[in-house]
Every structure is written in structure tokens, then in C-alpha cells.
């Protein structure tokens, strides 16, 4: 293909995105677009399955049968989201095994929030309320993204996430209305998960080099700081409503701007966790890698069995 031809394809591509048309897997796309989407979508898929771990760790200890059933269903939903997102990523010409390989070798990232431990039952509430709450804000913005399979996945996932968020808030509400011990448990969880939840929106705009290109491709429709602000403004009244205190002494309503002013995020901690040195990075990776390695003989067996069945079928046909 000549340079002129590529240029014309690129122009047509940009024009389609500008017209808000969806790009489908078989359409021509710039290599950088493909790679960026593989990176972001697989990162999202990895976040879903690594995210199963901190919550999954509470299934056996859930305080009531009703909570246990709801938690199982939630973690199962996350597995489903992972599956759905891996499949959507595969449409860009990469296999799930390759994506796992990238996760296990540390080449691919997942959301840093899951490197924080879930220590008490109240953390399950906080994760649903805050972490899923932050995730929805990110994901709603992605429902209009330009790549068709990703946008459609987001529409479906957002519906379930919003259910999870309400469920998490309800767990927290119940604790906040409970005994002093339960209320303290809820406040402690909010204290530990507030800042890491704010970090889920990524570095400050000034330090986010990919934002401009991603905005152009509608892979991002709002900047990190805009989304973070939206989360704060949405969550502060929810905390107040149930009598919990946001752990930020600088948090104050700004009448003029019509939104909350808030304190500075500890960016050193942010980068430390992103670079793999958070409280649970090693455990999470170890859990994923060992599930994968311990499962190898099972996957091999399934493959061998399928081949044998296929052979039997062929022999019969002959």
C-alpha cells in the first residue's frame, strides 16, 4: 500500500470517528488504534478477574446466607465481564492465552485498587460502593467509545456494575445503622478505600500523556481529573447521608465552582502501587499464576478429549 493510500485510509478513519460511527473489528484501523485498544481492553479484562480475588476471599466468611449468595453472584458477574472483555479484545487479533501471558509476566497492568487488601466485611461494602462506583463513572464514559465491541460490552457491563454499586452501598448503610462496632467497621473501610478509589481515575491530567490521543479516538470522553471530580461530588453526599465521614480534612464545598474542593492525592503511593509495590501486588499475581499453572493439566485434558471426540466422529463418517 502506498503512503498516499494509507493517508487516505487514515483520513477516512478519523472522519468516521468524528461522525460518531462505530469501528468494527474487520474495518481498517491504524495500528496504533489497534494496539491502544488491546492494551486498554485487556487491562480492563484483567482488572475484572484480579478483582475477583479480594472479594472472593470473603465468600467463605460472609456474615449471612443472603450476603453470601449476593457476593457469589457478584464475583461470578465479574468473571463474566472478564470473559466478555477478553472475547471483545480477541476480535483485535490476539488470543486469550497471549493476554494471560502478558498479565502473568507483568507486561499488562490491571487496576491498582485490587492490590489493596479486603480485611473486614465492611471492605466488601466499600469495594462495591466506592470501587464499583468509580468504575461505573469510567465505564459510562466508555459506552460511547469508537470501537464497537468495546462500547457494546460497556453498555452491558455498566448495568451489572450499577447493581453491584447499590449492593455495596446497602452493605455499608446496614453497618452504619448497626451497632457501634459495625459503624466503626464501616468508617474504617471508608478510611482505607477512599484515597485508593480516587486513584482509580489515573494520574492527574498534567501527568497523563495518552489523554489527548485517547480523547481524539473517543476512547476517553472526559479527562481523569474531570471523572475524579464527578466521583467526589457524587459520593460525598452518599457518605453524609449514612453518617460516615470522608477522610479528607481539606474537603469543602466550593459554592462558586459548584463542586467539592479536595485534598491532594498521595501520588508517591499511587506510583508505588502502579509499579508493583502495593500491599498485595505479589499475592494477586501469585494467585493468578498458580491458578493458571495448576490448571494446565485440566486444559490439556479438555483439548485432548475434544480431539479424540473429533477423531471418533470422523472415523464414523468414513
Amino acid at each position: 500500500m502506498s503512503e498516499a493510500q494509507i493517508k487516505s485510509l487514515e483520513e477516512e478513519f478519523e472522519a468516521r470517528i468524528a461522525r460518531d460511527e462505530k469501528i468494527e473489528p474487520k474495518d481498517w484501523m491504524p495500528e496504533k488504534y489497534r494496539k491502544t485498544h488491546i492494551r486498554q481492553m485487556s487491562q480492563h479484562a484483567h482488572s475484572e478477574i484480579v478483582g475477583m480475588l479480594p472479594e472472593g476471599n470473603w465468600i467463605s466468611r460472609a456474615p449471612s446466607l443472603r450476603r453470601k449468595v449476593a457476593l457469589l453472584a457478584k464475583v461470578q458477574d465479574e468473571g463474566g465481564h472478564g470473559l466478555y472483555l477478553y472475547s471483545a479484545t480477541e476480535t483485535l487479533g490476539i488470543t486469550r492465552d497471549e493476554l494471560f501471558e502478558q498479565l502473568h509476566t507483568g507486561k499488562a497492568k490491571y487496576s491498582s485498587i485490587f492490590n489493596y487488601p479486603a480485611l473486614t466485611w465492611a471492605d466488601i461494602g466499600a469495594i462495591g460502593w466506592l470501587v464499583d462506583g468509580a468504575a461505573i463513572i469510567n465505564q459510562v464514559a466508555l459506552c460511547g467509545t469508537s470501537f464497537g465491541p468495546y462500547a457494546r460490552a460497556m453498555v452491558r457491563i455498566c448495568k451489572e456494575e450499577s447493581f453491584h454499586q447499590r449492593q455495596g452501598y446497602e452493605i455499608t448503610l446496614k453497618l452504619a445503622q448497626g451497632t457501634l462496632e459495625q459503624k466503626a467497621m464501616a468508617q474504617d473501610a471508608l478510611n482505607r478505600f477512599w484515597w485508593p478509589s480516587l486513584m482509580m481515575f489515573g494520574p492527574a491530567d498534567a501527568d497523563s500523556p495518552n489523554t489527548e490521543q485517547s480523547m481524539k479516538w473517543k476512547l476517553k470522553r472526559k479527562t481523569n481529573d474531570e471523572l475524579r471530580q464527578q466521583f467526589i461530588d457524587q459520593t460525598v453526599p452518599q457518605a453524609e447521608l449514612i453518617g460516615l465521614t470522608i477522610p479528607d480534612p481539606d474537603l469543602k464545598w466550593n459554592e462558586e465552582k459548584g463542586c467539592y474542593d479536595s485534598g491532594e492525592i498521595d501520588w508517591d503511593e499511587f506510583w508505588q502501587v502502579v509499579k508493583g509495590h502495593g500491599p498485595c501486588n505479589k499475592e494477586r499475581m501469585k494467585a493468578r499464576v498458580s491458578a493458571w499453572e495448576n490448571g494446565e493439566w485440566v486444559r490439556d485434558a479438555a483439548l485432548a478429549h475434544a480431539e479424540k471426540q473429533q477423531e471418533k466422529k470422523l472415523n464414523k463418517a468414513v
Binding site: I49, I59, S60, L83
Partner: peptide
Amino acid sequence: LGELCGHGPSLETDIALTN
């Protein structure tokens, strides 16, 4: 079975056992 959630040999079996 709940102990296994997130540790299955594949995503499909993980989801099935949780289910």
C-alpha cells in the same frame, strides 16, 4: 466450592463452579 472462586483452571470452569 466457594473457596475456589477466582482460582479455577479456566475462566469458564471458574464461573461454572461458582454458579
